[in-house]
Design a protein around this nucleic acid. Structure first.
Lengths: 168, 168
DNA sequence: ATAAACTTTCAATAATTTTTGAAAGTTAAA
DNA sequence: TTTAACTTTCAAAAATTATTGAAAGTTTAT
């Protein structure tokens, strides 16, 4: 396969994967493009490479920055902003884990905690089922939470390596 | 909080969570409803409880079945089909992990493998960056893959317990 | 101060995804 | 059979989400 074709395919695949995980396709594609670009790119270059509008490129790049996946680069003597992506896969995974934890898991834990205080009678099957389902999900979420916290703190390689070792 | 309100909130929260993870909101809500229902429900009851159409209820229930999260129950002497959800959180997590692995990770690994065979020159920075990014993602994906395989096989409680222990 | 280079905003539009509901299909009892 | 109970399908409509692009905003150099 030729590089041009392979790059195309990579951008497409990463975009599809993103959209399956609740990340807007264009955002994943811009990320993919920067991932495989040796140099930082301008908004103009991103627009060009992916055939998207200026507004879209701008918003998407800002989003990626807020996810901690992309950074601005300022070149001395130039007005333009350049953008480049963190390339290390483990760092990307940690960054995404951290953001999703903050945006989703933390609020979920809060809600589950509220729900655990529901009032009702132990004789009521609806009450009992509710309680026990919420409890089960709470327990799992708490475990996921702890694991993510550890993952976020963990050094490169260390985490998965350790996990895998115990299963040998 | 009253049970009726809490159930409402749970359904809403689960639905929102689902949509943040690429699962259609209604599907997650139907799942939530069944999760907190002591008895299996009919299509009619699901339609009623969530104010959705027959077509939507039917498709959603079939989807949930294909995800292994919901099962049909046939009551002797009745024509109607009843639906109930697996209630154990760990089993649900495993089931989802298994399905997403099959639907997304396995195909991704295939594509990454193809992409690793791209032709080009080691002098070309675009080639080098492409290769190294793909390699990094491939390595991470392979680790996720192994971990999921283990998780899918693992017994209740065992998996997370083990993970957490090494971080104590 | 003005202009030029560049970035951001956002209302309108387009694309995509989800939902509806009525018709067609299926199954089992009479 | 025929009918009635129930399930499935799918084209059209609605809802949601993403994108555009031109205008407004900002910053720097002169």
């Amino acid at each position: 396969m030729e590089l041009v074709e392979a790059r195309q395919k990579f951008i497409e695949t990463w975009g599809k994967l993103g959209s399956e995980w609740g990340i807007n396709r264009t955002m994943a594609q811009v990320h993919a493009l920067l991932l495989i670009s040796p140099e930082a790119l301008t908004t103009e270059e991103v627009m060009e490479a992916l055939s998207i509008s200026r507004g879209n490129a701008n918003m998407t790049l800002r989003d990626l920055i807020s996810w901690g996946l992309v950074e601005k680069q300022l070149k001395p003597g130039e007005r333009k902003e350049y953008f480049f992506a963190e390339k290390d896969a483990w760092t990307i995974a940690r960054q995404v884990a951290q953001e999703r934890k903050k945006r989703e898991l933390d609020p979920l834990l809060k809600v589950l905690n509220d729900l655990s205080e529901v009032k009702g009678s132990e004789k009521d099957p609806a009450y009992k089922t509710f309680k026990s389902s919420v409890k089960g999900i709470t327990k799992l979420s708490a475990n996921v939470n702890k694991t993510l916290e550890t993952m976020i703190k963990a050094e490169e390689n260390w985490f998965w390596g350790s996990i895998l070792k115990i299963f040998k």
